[in-house]
């Protein structure tokens, strides 16, 4: 386990992301929620039953990557903004990453942005491909950014 209690951010060793085979198949949700907190909207909102809590709402969410199709409903439903969408099948060289973004102004498709890591450090440049912002998402839009494939599990925010 990393020092997230001391510095506030997770590292890859804290989470169990899907394997390469699953990642290359198409979009999938990655949940970065490691504490036992009383919360279950992610599993409640998943139409495919991919996210479950073992016995109580205090359990950590368990995601079945075989059932998850990366639809993104859980992303806008997560009160902790802790779910991200990763699509390694986006193109030959690039991945598409969906990030929850509750700031104004919203970026526009085609806009170049600075990519930030979990600890807020600049780690590259990406291009906004689309912004999903429906009424059901209740003011938590998802910004989809294309970036180098190797950055997909590092980038969790962006700066305009």
């Amino acid at each position: 386990m990393s020092d997230y209690l001391k510095n506030g951010y997770l590292t890859l060793e804290d989470i169990s992301p899907p394997d390469m085979e699953r990642l290359e198949k198409g979009p999938v949700a990655v949940i970065e929620c490691v504490q036992e907190i009383p919360c279950n909207p992610c599993s409640d909102s998943c139409h495919r039953g991919a996210i479950t809590m073992k016995t109580s709402i205090n359990d950590r969410p368990d995601i079945d990557y075989k059932l998850c199709n990366g639809c993104g409903i859980c992303v806008a439903n997560c009160p902790g903004l802790a779910i991200f969408l990763i699509d390694q099948s986006y193109s030959e060289t690039e991945a598409l990453v969906g990030l929850p973004y509750e700031f104004l102004p919203l970026p526009e498709a085609g806009e170049k942005v600075m990519l930030l890591s979990r600890q807020g450090e600049v780690c590259g440049e990406g291009v906004v491909q689309k912004v999903r912002n429906t009424r059901a998402m209740d003011r938590t839009p998802i910004v989809f950014i294309s970036m180098r494939k190797d950055l997909a599990m590092t980038v969790r925010f962006f700066r305009r």
Binding site: N7, G8, L10, L116, R118, R156
Partner: peptide, 21 residues
């Protein structure tokens, strides 16, 4: 250590805001 839920702290950290314990 940080008393807040990790998910709340992470939201802030990825924006580049330091949390100094």
């Amino acid at each position: 250590t940080i008393g807040a839920y990790q998910v709340h702290a992470s939201k802030l950290r990825r924006c580049g805001i330091p949390i100094l314990t």
